[in-house]
Simulated assay, not measured.
Amino acid sequence: MTDPHLSARHRPRAALAMAERSARQVLGSGSLGRLTELLDLDPGLVLDDFTTPAARRALADAELLVTGWGCPPLDRRVLDAAPRLRAVVHTAGTVRHHITDACWERGIAVSSAAAANAVPVAEYTVAMILLSNKRILDIARDYRAERRTIDWNERYPDAGNYRRTVGILSASVIGRRVIELLRPYDLDLRLYDPYVTAQEAEELGALQVGLRELFAGSDVISVHTPLLPATQGLVSRELLAAMPDGATLINTARGAVVDQDALTEELVAGRIRAVLDVTVPEVLPAASPLYDCDNALITPHIAGSKSGELRRLADLAIGEIENYVTGRDFAHPVRPEILDRSA
């Protein structure tokens, strides 16, 4: 049922700006119906190129853009063609690919569904932490190969999650969610984030430690730092070498945060384990030795929102549009002053 308070308001003129596939997958018929209740919007027009005549006509009147994966950059030239634009609601995570300095200079309000996209990434991470400590992948591989009764306690005396140490690299939105989800377990949580104080880490439920201490003292290390110039190659050869034998590195952030050559050497040698949802390049060459490492689980960047989980992104974005239409502040604003240290 339509909210009478919403229906009584003027519907802002808006446009969809994203790849057509993004619109099809993220915004199902139900979401599009809700958007057309809130906004004066042509659901059949999806802008993936701002230079076309249709895009120019849409931009000229748009007060709000609903953006998604594949949205072209909103640079100064595009904004000149959109003199009435006041807000952007992004149906995905990072806005770095399309929100430019010109947007902030114009005072455009920006919201992102990063909090919604963080949920499945955190869930994937927690599952992999628990499976890694339990040595499930190793045991399943051995059982499949040997097909007999084995004393798993003897073979894997370190298996299990009781009082194991998990290191979280970065208290990002996802990193914080992972810590929250891990609180009920009998794990010792450690955190490295230069922007978080010891008291803040304790309030989150983790012990603040130094970067090398995180790697040297953790059974599992989960990487959640955004890829920035300062974090490229942050997980260096030296840090990987400091990891205890048999420890596991989980990376759901960006492949370039890790020195992949050094990681490959460690994995080929069999000294540590890894769960990699991201690599450099994003699809490894067919000849990469990582494909053949029994101690490496590689997934094709699937930790984020997939299939039915995409509806969560749409729901958050629609909630933000309701906030805008009713004159409330965004619940999930993107602020330019923290972009230099966030995704």
Results as ranks from 00 to 15, higher is better:
171 A>L: 09
269 A>Y: 06
125 T>R: 03
315 D>Y: 01
143 Y>S: 15
282 E>K: 05
177 R>W: 02
121 V>P: 01
182 L>E: 02
223 V>C: 15
130 L>C: 11
62 A>Y: 04
290 L>E: 12
172 S>Y: 04
24 R>E: 15
163 R>E: 15
57 R>M: 10
203 E>S: 07
263 L>A: 08
305 S>A: 15
282 E>H: 08
263 L>C: 04
187 L>R: 00
277 D>Q: 08
338 I>W: 09
312 R>D: 14
110 V>D: 11
266 E>Y: 07
342 S>Y: 13
56 R>L: 14
84 R>N: 15
220 V>F: 01
123 E>G: 01
297 L>N: 04
20 E>V: 12
62 A>I: 02
25 Q>Y: 10
111 S>C: 08
223 V>Q: 09
284 L>D: 05
330 F>R: 00
273 R>S: 14
72 P>F: 10
314 A>W: 09
135 R>W: 13
143 Y>R: 10
62 A>K: 00
76 R>K: 13
295 N>Y: 06
290 L>H: 09
211 L>C: 04
147 R>P: 01
279 T>Y: 03
159 A>T: 07
33 G>F: 07
66 V>D: 07
190 R>H: 04
190 R>T: 02
32 L>Q: 13
294 D>V: 08
97 H>C: 02
10 H>D: 15
32 L>P: 02
289 P>Y: 11
179 I>D: 07
248 T>S: 12
97 H>T: 14
20 E>A: 14
224 H>L: 09
298 I>F: 09
233 G>Y: 05
35 L>D: 11
134 K>I: 06
271 R>K: 03
252 T>Y: 09
28 G>P: 03
68 G>N: 07
5 H>V: 14
75 D>L: 10
265 E>Y: 03
202 E>P: 01
139 I>E: 13
300 P>D: 09
166 V>H: 00
332 H>S: 10
53 P>E: 12
